[in-house]
Amino acid sequence: MTNADNKSIIVAIDVDKIYPNGCHALKKVSLTVEKGEVVVIIGPSGSGKSTFLRTLNQLETISSGSIVVDGFDLNSKHTNINRVREKVGMVFQSFNLFPHKTALGNVMLSPRKVLKKPEQQAEEEGRELLYKVGLADRMDNFPSHLSGGQQQRVAIARALAMMPDIMLFDEPTSALDPEMVGEVLDVMKTLAADGMTMVVVTHEMGFAREVADRVVFMEEGELVFEEQPDRFFSSSNSRLQRFLGQVL
């Protein structure tokens, strides 16, 4: 490892991603995330935010560069990506709950099958997590019988059930009706307060201001600018100014 001390839990260096169709989605993106840090990524549509987030648990492979996550070198042939993913939870814009399982069933599945936890323990922990995200009375509902906000909270609980060291969020509130955004952001704030390392792609500037330790601005596949929230939003960077002018 190069410039990373033992507190850096994500170290991405000069990451390039070229999709098979030739789209150059990431251009020399470097980012270091410390343990317990909350990093928010913002940027216009198509700037490569999702792509970058997805390289961190190798849902996308990278074309060049290096990524070390939780001590695992993703480029190494000896890294079992499934072990990395156990430690890196991911929450999607479209929830992606398993529709054939109840809320509790969604949360329990991976602890049961991947971590081989006993049924009873997985269920107890699952109930506790669902209780924490405010779904104590919805455990046995199927996803189709839950609101968007409830589904996203189940998805967060499902990722937390693997006891990850890092949580990745890809626009977790973008598919929600406005009145449900708050309940999901509240869960995320609690999580941040508990010291979880989080990388969050979002358009919620309020969340970035309030919760983030650092905000990152991406544009056209490049990481343009990163700074602490107060300095970030008062920055005079012209590309950032242009973007913030459009969204705020």
């Binding site: 993913r85 156990e86 991911m90 398993f98 998805a155």
Partner: peptide
């Protein structure tokens, strides 16, 4: 089946067969 299902399962640490 929506590809998101496979991604969600894989991102939870399941291998392809699981």
């Amino acid at each position: 089946i929506n590809p998101g299902q496979m991604e969600a399962a894989r991102s939870l640490g399941m291998n392809y067969v699981q």
